[in-house]
Amino acid sequence: MLYHPKWSKAKKRLMSFVCESLYSRIDFQVINYRKAHDQLGRAVITVDKVEMLSMCTIIAEREEYYRERDIRIQLDNFNYDNVINNRAIQGQAQEQLKTEGIYAQYDFFSALEKYFNSPIEVSLKSNDMLIKILCVLDRRVGKRTLHKMKESITEENTLVQDFYKLRCDAENIHSSE
């Protein structure tokens, strides 16, 4: 499943939302592996050319398999014939991965789609770590909103906190203000 509005167009649109203070420092890349069975690879967010988040399909799917296996061991449930049960276990495994910040390339595209099609106010309230990161980098999120996020950001994943700190530093917003 390759991303359908062309990645170059999506990237251009995504970059148009990046705040001015980080525009030259942030980059989004999609790397597809043509020889992979599904031709998917990974999506990467870099800051100053250093990978901050790599969303690799192969790693995510491998980890999902391990999580599903662990859940089945905990539940002592190895009945693979119950479709509803299988989906519930898969959903639980996927939630664990998202909590840990393990994403596949298609998760990035899915988050991007939601981000592009939702007002910034809605995206800011999202439980999706990727959408939160995109919001923190978004030029539509001003200094006042960033300042208001100071309390709630401590409850977020450390990666979201890292991007928040990066944005605050770039905007000269300090915790003492």
Results as ranks from 00 to 15, higher is better:
Lys148Leu: 13
Cys135Trp: 00
Tyr23Val: 10
Leu112Asn: 01
Lys49Ala: 10
Glu100Ala: 11
Glu113Trp: 09
Arg67Leu: 03
Ser110Gly: 12
Val30Glu: 09
Cys56Leu: 07
Gln74Ile: 05
Glu171Ser: 08
Ser123Trp: 00
Glu155His: 10
Arg69Trp: 12
Tyr23Ala: 15
Ile58Leu: 09
His37Lys: 15
Glu64Ser: 06
Leu166Cys: 04
Lys132Tyr: 01
Ile173Gln: 03
Ser21Arg: 08
Arg67Tyr: 08
Leu14Gly: 05
Asn77Val: 08
Val30Pro: 02
Val18His: 03
Val136Trp: 03
Tyr115Ser: 02
Ile173Lys: 05
Asn77Cys: 13
His4Asp: 14
Gln105Tyr: 04
Ser175Tyr: 07
Arg25Pro: 02
Tyr3Ile: 10
Gln94Trp: 02
Lys9His: 13
Leu22Ile: 04
Glu155Phe: 04
Asn32Val: 05
Phe78Leu: 08
Glu121Ser: 14
Ser118Asp: 13
Ile131Ser: 03
Leu75Trp: 06
Gln29Gly: 09
Gln94Leu: 12
Asp27His: 02
Asn85Tyr: 13
Lys12Tyr: 13
Thr154Gln: 13
Lys98Gly: 00
Ser8Glu: 15
His147Ala: 14
Tyr66Met: 12
Tyr23Cys: 13
Met52Asn: 07
Asn117Arg: 10
Asp128Thr: 06
Phe17Asp: 11
Gln161Asn: 08
Lys114Ile: 13
Val50Gly: 06
Asp169Ser: 12
Met55Arg: 00
Asn82Thr: 06
Ala10Asp: 12
Thr158Arg: 14
Pro5Glu: 02
Phe109Thr: 09
Met52Trp: 08
Ile26Tyr: 02
Ile84Val: 13
Val18Cys: 04
Leu22Phe: 05
Leu112Gln: 04
Glu64Gly: 00
Lys132Thr: 03
Met129Pro: 01
Glu156Leu: 07
Val136Ser: 04
Ser54Ala: 10
Asp138Ala: 07
Ile120Ala: 05
Leu97Ile: 00
Leu137Thr: 02
Ala104Trp: 00
Val30Cys: 13
Ile120Gly: 02
Ala111Asp: 01
Ile133Lys: 01
Lys165Ile: 14
Leu134Gln: 01
Ser54Lys: 11
Glu95Leu: 12
Glu171Pro: 03
Leu2Arg: 10
Thr154Trp: 09
Gln90Ala: 11
Asp169Val: 09
Asn117Glu: 13
Val44Ile: 14
Ser118His: 13
Glu121Ala: 12
Gly142Asp: 14
Asp76Phe: 06
Met1Phe: 07
Gln96Lys: 07
Asp169Leu: 12
Thr99Phe: 08
Gln105Asn: 06
Ile153Asn: 03
